[in-house]
Lab assay of single mutants.
Amino acid sequence: MIVFVRFNSSHGFPVEVDSDTSIFQLKEVVAKRQGVPADQLRVIFAGKELRNDWTVQNCDLDQQSIVHIVQRPWRKGQEMNATGGDDPRNAAGGCEREPQSLTRVDLSSSVLPGDSVGLAVILHTDSRKDSPPAGSPAGRSIYNSFYVYCKGPCQRVQPGKLRVQCSTCRQATLTLTQGPSCWDDVLIPNRMSGECQSPHCPGTSAEFFFKCGAHPTSDKETSVALHLIATNSRNITCITCTDVRSPVLVFQCNSRHVICLDCFHLYCVTRLNDRQFVHDPQLGYSLPCVAGCPNSLIKELHHFRILGEEQYNRYQQYGAEECVLQMGGVLCPRPGCGAGLLPEPDQRKVTCEGGNGLGCGFAFCRECKEAYHEGECSAVFEASGTTTQAYRVDERAAEQARWEAASKETIKKTTKPCPRCHVPVEKNGGCMHMKCPQPQCRLEWCWNCGCEWNRVCMGDHWFDV
């Protein structure tokens, strides 16, 4: 396979590697080409510095992935760790964990309700045991953590790749202090920090972006993250068709209702045909949960890209028209025109101005929308079919299609509260000796007794199943 190397943020060049090629071997190839010592090179990928003893497969490097290699003399205490030698983080029983690669970060837990604080980093599902597709590297999971809308060759929703760059020099040479644990960490600028490894760059702020994971991409090709779309790892039924499908869209209502993408497309087109989208002054033209839940309008309007190009163009047109109407304007009634106009409040005669090729020149009556006339309008008909009709959803289907309910059931079956801080902690095999993952707590306690870890627990039921 081919990976592209950008040395000291210059133009990239291809390097041929195998899945079992080590990072140090990659350094040696680059060092020979650039005429520099291999031990002064640092390989940066997806916000993480890659260790010498890791392989291309370990690092989730795919065909035509772009890695950054910078030349920086080692500072005291760094060289041993980078070589894969006596790194205290690798000691058996050590409590410190390697910062998780962005290629394996899962933010789907952050669609849980606000009262489930902490689960994004504490609760991990076991539903990723799908067998890898044919042709994928051994052991590589097909679980997708992110979804994007690819405006490039795909023109559809695709699995996405999370990447990070330095907000100062805009190069992907920043190593994160810690990985993101929720969508806010990724979507809110300057929320996460790190250290830029580019020479002479003092940058410390992280800037995240997404790429389409279905095809090789260049540095400049980015895609918009659709953070309401998630892999259906909890096997929730769709609120409309009641099938279990994946991926799904999880509405931001209190129940976190789930809808499959085909039904979401149908829901949007139906509402669009009836012009029953909601115009929100802050958000724009949007839709609420299909069950009509309060405070559930979709905030990231790129989710409506699921409509496809033709329907999305209609959505944008109707949204612009609705904006004009909300501002007190009118639409030209001549067939084939429909231009938005903003006449004076007491102006009865409205002319669709033909300047700049935008208007048709038609003069019409503001009251009856017919060709302009003197005197009273002959008839004014009330528009028919403008009443909002509820999208029919079966109550039982709505009850079963809740992301929140599956989460709470998982928590109930696989977790116990920490005796000190009461945060839910998952036990997935292993011994009875637990350690609270909350940095402010870190209590060592017994899963069996529910009390602080002691010699009695150690001698009596340390390794009970």
Rank of each mutant, 00 (worst) to 15 (best):
R156V: 06
W403A: 03
C260D: 00
S378W: 11
V164G: 03
T103H: 12
D62S: 13
P88R: 09
S296R: 00
Q389N: 15
R163I: 15
S286F: 00
L358T: 14
V157K: 02
L112T: 14
Q155G: 14
Q78A: 15
H422M: 08
A405Q: 09
T83W: 13
V56F: 05
V29K: 11
R275G: 02
Y267F: 06
H215L: 01
N81M: 14
A339H: 09
T21W: 14
V29L: 15
W462M: 08
V5F: 02
A120T: 10
A230Y: 09
E370G: 06
E409I: 09
C418R: 01
P439D: 07
E321V: 06
G12T: 07
V248N: 01
C166L: 00
D62A: 14
H257W: 00
P424S: 06
L41V: 01
A46F: 04
L307M: 08
F209K: 14
Q78D: 15
C59V: 04
Q25L: 03
F264C: 01
T414W: 11
E395R: 11
P99K: 14
V244K: 06
C59A: 07
E207K: 07
H422N: 13
G429A: 15
C238K: 01
G459D: 15
E382L: 14
A398M: 15
L123M: 13
L443Y: 08
H200C: 09
A363E: 14
L176I: 08
H373Y: 02
Q57P: 04
V70A: 02
G450R: 02
T21A: 11
V67P: 00
C241N: 00
D53N: 10
T414G: 09
R104C: 13
I23W: 00
Q276V: 07
R366I: 10
L50S: 01
R128Y: 13
G328R: 05
C441F: 01
F277T: 01
I23A: 02
T204I: 07
E395F: 10
D126K: 10
R392K: 15
R348K: 12
L61R: 01
L107C: 15
V36F: 04
V456M: 15
E98S: 11
R271T: 07
S22P: 13
F24A: 14
K161Q: 11
A31M: 02
T175K: 15
Y372D: 07
C377I: 02
F210Q: 00
L307H: 02
P159V: 08
Q311I: 05
G194R: 01
L307T: 06
D126R: 07
Y372G: 04
S181A: 13
N90S: 13
C360L: 02
H302Q: 15
G135Y: 11
F362C: 04
F4V: 05
I122V: 14
K211M: 13
W183G: 01
R156S: 15
Q64E: 13
T351I: 14
Q158I: 05
T175E: 13
A397I: 11
P439W: 05
V423T: 15
S108I: 06
L176Y: 02
Q276F: 06
V269M: 04
V30H: 00
K211D: 14
V29H: 14
A320Q: 11
D60K: 15
E382R: 13
C59R: 00
G152W: 14
